[in-house]
Amino acid sequence: MTSSPNETHEAGPPASGDEPRAREADPAEHAQAAEHAQAAEHAQAAEHAQAAEHAHAAEHAHANPVRVWAILCALLVVSVVGPMAEIRLLTLITAFGIAGVKAYLVAKHFLRLGVERRYVAYALVVSVAFMVLFFAGTAPDVMEHRGRLWTNHAAQKEVERALKEAARDGH
């Protein structure tokens, strides 16, 4: 996408005139065509209009990034301090709940997904959802070491061995 200076492309237009593309040059026609494409994409034009309006409004309404950053730092402190209470549930909530919140803030305000067309966020969420699907299909075999009519002896032995060793080392 470099703009090389030797391009003839730019030099063409005055010569090529208006007639060959009389239809092309009609901006209203174009706008309409583009609009149509959008409408189909969103399944309804109303949503499209709304999205455009949204984007327009957001031009003035970007959250102050420094403030977002300050909130993120505060959350970071909580996520480090939280586990010091040594309560397992609290650790999980502070560690992963806060990670989710931080990721949401970064995605919304830094990546500006809040003002991007909505299907972009959907596409990203779908790729995360596929990973959840992968986890759901795989975990019954890999995470579990015993199921209906089967046992993973190797994994069980390894867990036992490692825990015994850890106990011996005095953990």
């Binding site: 003839t8 090529s16 593309r21 040059a25 984007a55 957001a58």
Partner: peptide, 24 residues
């Protein structure tokens, strides 16, 4: 969307370039 500096933003500029002579 909100980017005046963006050369690829949709709008008049885009359409104009379509009327250029084809690099045949």
């Amino acid at each position: 969307m909100a980017q005046p500096a963006n050369q690829e933003a949709p709008g008049s500029g885009t359409r104009q370039s379509e009327t250029l002579a084809p690099p045949a």
